[in-house]
């Protein structure tokens, strides 16, 4: 079974857990899945195994803590320490997929706004001037920042699982992280001087480029799913 099939199976079986066991189990599931650098296959196989065990124990009237101990986070860390790391190729694919998705969404978003503004509301201009040097530095920098914040948010989520955080406090923390990250994003965009060769492109070309990137991401996803099944 590949990881996608295991995830599906897990979703179905999880519904048989009682409320208390489900809460604990799902915390553990989130915590283990947030560890991106571990082999997905191994992680899902383990999650499936733990779920089977918990379900059998539940039939005997046992609770999660009776089976896995009173400190689920420490237990999860113990498991994580033993799960093999994912391979470099897997990591590279994940990085590529992440970067492409990021650029695709930025391009589509910008292209759509500029195109609608000009062609529907008659504001702005149909052409945009690109400075090659600035464009390269800005894209690299924003990609770097995006991955950094992905890392910060992942770490925050890992920190907040297994904790009964107040809903409002949780929201406040996430809001703080978002505001901070958006701020850091815009600093290089607004304050970087233009340099390098410049040329003009129509604003809708961003939209086209973004959609093309999106299509690539989509086909990689589909292809990956298929090749794993074969």
């Amino acid at each position: 079974m590949n990881s996608q099939e295991l995830i599906k199976l897990n979703n179905e079986k999880r519904e048989m857990l009682n409320e208390e066991n489900e809460k604990y189990y799902e915390d553990m599931l989130v915590y283990l899945r947030l560890s991106f650098l571990k082999s997905e296959q191994e992680t899902e196989e383990l999650l499936n195994e733990l779920l089977d065990h918990l379900l059998e124990a539940q039939e005997e009237g046992k609770e999660f803590t009776e089976v896995f101990g009173d400190n689920p986070k420490q237990y999860a860390n113990e498991l994580l320490g033993e799960i093999p790391k994912s391979m470099t190729k897997e990591r590279f694919n994940l990085f590529l997929l992440g970067s492409f998705s990021f650029f695709a969404s930025v391009l589509i978003f910008n292209g759509l706004i500029d195109t609608i503004m000009y062609y529907i509301f008659g504001k702005g201009s149909p052409m945009d001037e690109i400075f090659l040097g600035t464009a390269i530095v800005k894209s690299t920098l924003s990609l770097f920042i995006a991955f950094f914040f992905l890392f910060v948010i992942t770490e925050y989520l890992k920190w907040s699982t297994f904790k009964d955080l107040n809903k409002y406090l949780d929201f406040f923390y996430l809001w703080l992280i978002s505001v901070f990250s958006i701020g850091v994003f815009f600093i290089p965009i607004y304050f970087m001087p233009n340099f390098g060769e410049s040329f003009e492109v129509p604003v809708y070309s961003y939209l086209i480029l973004g959609l093309m990137l999106g299509l690539i991401v989509y086909s990689i996803f589909k292809f990956n799913g298929k090749s794993k099944k074969a």
């Binding site: 383990l46 195994e49 733990l50 065990h53 124990a57 009776e66 089976v67 896995f68 101990g69 237990y75 113990e78 498991l79 320490g81 033993e82 799960i83």
Partner: peptide, 12 residues
């Protein structure tokens, strides 16, 4: 032993 303690060992 706690039942769960076998899993880290199985992984190792």
């Amino acid at each position: 032993v706690s039942e769960g303690s076998i899993y880290p060992i199985l992984l190792r």
